[in-house]
Design a protein around this nucleic acid. Sequence first.
DNA 1: ATCATTCCTGACCTTTTTAGTCAAGAATGA
DNA 2: TCATTCTTGACTAAAAAGGTCAGGAATGAT
Lengths: 155, 155
Amino acid sequence: MRITSSIEYATRLMVTLAAEHGKAPVPAERLAETDNVPADYVSQILVKLRRAGLVTSHLGSSGGYSLSRTPCKITIEQVVRAVDGAVFEEVCERYDDGAKDCRHQGQCAISPVWTRLGEIVTRYFESVTLAAILEQKAGSCGASPAWLEKLAPGK
Amino acid sequence: MRITSSIEYATRLMVTLAAEHGKAPVPAERLAETDNVPADYVSQILVKLRRAGLVTSHLGSSGGYSLSRTPCKITIEQVVRAVDGAVFEEVCERYDDGAKDCRHQGQCAISPVWTRLGEIVTRYFESVTLAAILEQKAGSCGASPAWLEKLAPGK
DNA sequence: ATCATTCCTGACCTTTTTAGTCAAGAATGA
DNA sequence: TCATTCTTGACTAAAAAGGTCAGGAATGAT
């Protein structure tokens, strides 16, 4: 299981745009340099982010991209969904030719394990906003943000 | 993000073996049929599970595979690690040519997000045992097992 | 108006990973 | 002794990830 380059890159771009929020739009080319992302790839990712309504594009000279809303209102969940389509893919029926003899139906107890995992991951991603990441970066708030707090129960 | 076929298949095999725990070893071919996994693929997966010490093989006629310990002591985390090598791969440096100009070092605030996710996923997998899945399957205990309980805090 | 800037679209390519197959061989128990 | 069952490792095919490219259209600056 791993974080794809699209997700990593998209997150970098969004964090950078968050830092520039309120200022002038940032051209894709500058984002590519700043965030160390291949120039032709960055455009593709930005298109997805735009279609998802997370960023706004401005044509013409001194154009570029900017966040379409405040960094507080944008979560990693939204970023991941924008570039990958879904945070967690359904497992059911993927590994069973059609649905015949599917181990995931009726009495199967395995699929709930994956479904639950998807919920947990989604829940976590929803709890992390661009603003929180930025805050962490600036080191402006001493204490760790909520999403970095220790897990509650057992070891 | 998704569950690979290896993980899904390995889990099916382990659950089936858990159900047969204490009885005679189960041949790979029978596992393939029972769990609807390609026959030649099942052996490969079982080899990994054996090398990880999760199952024991018995040669000769009436041989086969059996769990190497009680289903209570085997977690999904162990199964995933056995077939995929790691539950969650490090993100750092994967997307930065070498380490030069790496966004993941020093002041970068993104990598902790992924690291934390890895911890959460690992923690979850560690909480799910084969015994728990089996119990759920049998419907023997009315209430949901711990790992299916509602998440604690906010919506 | 013109023109450099910047985004838009979609096709294309390469590499890596996933998923699955195959065959020869060695150990074991009946 | 021999059918059964695992062992090993190489091999292949398909899908996904990762990245490139080119032609075009919109916009703002001058």
